[in-house]
Design a protein around this nucleic acid. Structure first.
Length: 387
DNA sequence: AACACGATCAACCGCTCGGTG
DNA sequence: GCACCGAGCGGTTGATCGTGT
């Protein structure tokens, strides 16, 4: 804030030999050929040029700004500067308590969808919200406080479980994004909120770890999943609340997959804010054919079918279940989303000898999938429920 | 006063998505 | 169907500020 850059100093436009000018090698393909684009803080002169340009030409076509205005800034930078600082009706200053609450609520619904959250906060930018949230995360983490206040948990859940909430657009997603919250891995049993069993039960090796981790229901988290720091991955000390248990990571679902699952799995027993578009070609499960979910599901079904032909696979993965946390977590393939997932699938074995296919073996149909989920819900609620 | 450290914020970077030819 | 391009998004980084020792 105080360092908000628009100082009118010698830092104006970097000379061509400025270290920051990067020798014409501008990021993001922002080089326009011969002109060297400036990076770093904006000056008031640049701001006024940009404002003037937008006034005359309107927003958009940001790459043309540099050409027509003489600004030595890439389009990206112009767009960002405009959106975050120069556009009219921007609200400056600290968030009001109402805004803060709305942010928390929206985050509970959307996860790290800053732009969408910003759409609900007039005058606020996604960057602002993102920064606010990140600092809030750190603060709360440090203080050992819950991410979501208990009253919000109680308040937000019914909204999540119903078809959207008035005044808050859920788009095609529910609160599934909560699964990934700024470096925290949200454990699987959060699906309690969706009337679905923790999928840890689908991953015996992982569930075993989870089930033995004691004290996993800090009351202040209500029914929201506690945020598990990635302490095992780095140097951060574990949060006191969760000490004693092995670090728990969500299984290797990419966020997009989780989103797709959580938001569109109504036929699997989930509540979801998803209105199937009758004009779209739907899969038998009522899922958009083009979604990530379909891609993944296709992969899974394909693999499951292939493997179901081989005997005793399910018992194999049910017994050889010691997928170590580290194995799962550290598998780069598993962190790359569906592509990585597929890559992983294409490999016969995980580091622990289990293929993803074997993990999902048995789910050769949506119905089977669903029934298994429901079965496991009852069987594992006692282990994982936060209630 | 000097220093260290955490908090905050602006900006950058890489990636994805959608439109277009 | 494919490649290209622009726009946008989310994560990360680095500079600055504020505060405590």
């Amino acid at each position: 804030m105080g360092h908000s850059t628009t100082t009118e100093s010698e830092d104006g436009v970097l000379s061509a030999d400025s270290p920051l000018s990067n020798d014409g090698e501008n990021s993001g393909g922002s080089s326009n050929g011969n002109a060297l684009l400036k990076k770093g803080p904006w000056t008031t002169a640049e701001d006024s040029i940009l404002v003037d340009y937008v006034k005359r030409h309107g927003e958009g076509n940001w790459n043309a700004v540099q050409k027509h205005s003489g600004l030595s800034r890439c389009g990206k930078s112009c767009r960002l500067r405009w959106a975050n600082h120069l556009r009219p009706n921007l609200k400056k200053g600290a968030f009001t308590s109402e805004e803060e609450r709305l942010i928390i609520e929206l985050h509970a619904k959307m996860g790290n969808k800053w732009a969408r959250m910003a759409a609900h906060l007039p005058g606020r930018t996604d960057n602002e919200i993102k920064n606010y949230w990140n600092t809030r995360i750190k603060r709360r983490q440090r203080a050992g406080l819950p991410l979501y206040p208990p009253d919000l948990c109680l308040h937000a859940l019914p909204e999540n479980q119903h078809h959207g909430s008035p005044g808050i657009y859920d788009g095609d997603k529910g609160c599934h994004d909560i699964m990934q919250i700024n470096g925290y891995e949200t454990p699987d049993f959060m699906f309690d909120n969706f009337n679905i069993s923790p999928y840890t039960s689908e991953f015996p090796g992982i569930s075993a770890t989870v089930s033995t981790s004691n004290g996993f229901a800090p009351p202040q988290f209500c029914t929201f999943a506690p945020q598990i720091p990635k302490c095992a991955q780095g140097t951060d000390a574990p949060m006191p609340d969760y000490e004693g248990g092995a670090p728990i990571e969500a299984p290797p679902f990419h966020k997009n997959q989780i989103e797709s699952y959580a938001s569109k799995m109504s036929p699997f027993g989930l509540y979801f804010p998803y209105e199937p578009d009758p004009t779209q070609k739907m899969f038998p499960f009522g899922v958009d054919k083009d979604s990530h979910f379909i891609g993944l599901l296709e992969d899974l079904l394909y693999e499951a079918k292939a493997l179901s032909k081989s005997d005793n696979q399910s018992s194999d993965w049910a017994t050889s279940s010691n997928i170590s946390h580290g194995d799962v977590k550290d598998s780069p393939a598993l962190e790359k989303g569906s592509a990585g997932f597929k890559d992983y699938r294409d490999h016969p074995s995980s580091p622990s000898g289990n293929s993803i296919g074997s993990i999902f073996n048995g789910y050769t149909s949506a119905g089977t999938f669903r029934s298994s989920l429901e079965e496991n819900k009852s069987g594992t609620d006692s282990l994982f429920s936060l209630k």
